[in-house]
Design a protein around this nucleic acid. Structure first.
Lengths: 132, 132
DNA sequence: GTGAGTTTGACAATCATTCTCAGGTGGAAT
DNA sequence: ATTCCACCTGAGAATGATTGTCAAACTCAC
């Protein structure tokens, strides 16, 4: 059975506390800074578990890191991510779901899954970029 | 200026010859097998160049590898990929482009870019899976 | 409280990718 | 055709994220 350790709790809370997607390394660094003696391997394991259980979403950064995020809903959804500050908005996209399903079917593909994410500059960062 | 070496040509041809997305490692292995003395670092450099110049598309596999593919069009498009055999179909998605742009705008995001790919089982692999 | 099985953590191992740098080479000028 | 040199290549080292190992610590059911 799955045990409930303070390490897992710590990872869960750290994820909840961060506003956008974070890397395992970053999360680990943050936990260590706040005094936790948690191990790196444990953070990786906890994140992988959370992702499997549906408590966290994950995506691949362009630099080859895996990024994680605690999402408010476990339902299928997508993300709108600020590539400057990391702020993330959860978005629904029924239209896209249907488009994906029908496109796959039209080409004879079955069991379609899809990756759909939008990266941009959030309102605040857009303003900042204009000023800077 | 950009030089025209046989190594670059070899990478380009290897890319053209493969039907789906391939990893740099896989491409390198194939080239070596066919007798080419090309170096690994060179393959990485060539692929990175091709991607920048728009001659190749790239995406991140879930295992943290970068995958590359020579596409028939340099226009913006997306992919429908068989997760069993790697066969890839290029697809257009004006509807999705517009959805992405308007969704980003609605949340105050600017300069939207997006990642949209569909993974499934192609007709052949679907049939195979049923049989197996 | 006890025992059995899970989880943890320090560190080694792995894997893709990038860096380094000495030697090779394309191609413009001659 | 020859020369020249900035760019390219290749072998191996270096990097950085992630995973594996295994003994010790811990959780939970009883």
């Amino acid at each position: 059975m799955k045990r409930n350790t303070w390490q897992r709790q710590a990872v869960r809370e750290a994820l909840d506390t961060s506003q956008g997607f974070v890397s395992a390394q970053h999360l680990y660094a943050g936990l260590r800074e706040s005094g936790s003696p948690i191990g790196l391997a444990t953070v990786y394991r906890a994140l992988a578990d959370l992702a499997v259980e549906g408590e966290a979403d994950s995506l691949q950064s362009t630099e080859g890191e895996s990024l994680y995020r605690a999402c408010s809903t476990q339902e299928h959804h997508h993300h709108l991510i600020c590539r400057n500050c990391g702020t993330t908005v959860e978005i629904e996209a029924d239209a896209v779901e249907q488009w994906a399903a029908s496109t796959a079917a039209r080409h004879g593909f079955t069991e379609p899954r899809h990756i759909v994410d939008i990266f941009g500059l959030c309102a605040a960062c857009s303003a900042g970029a204009r000023g800077a």
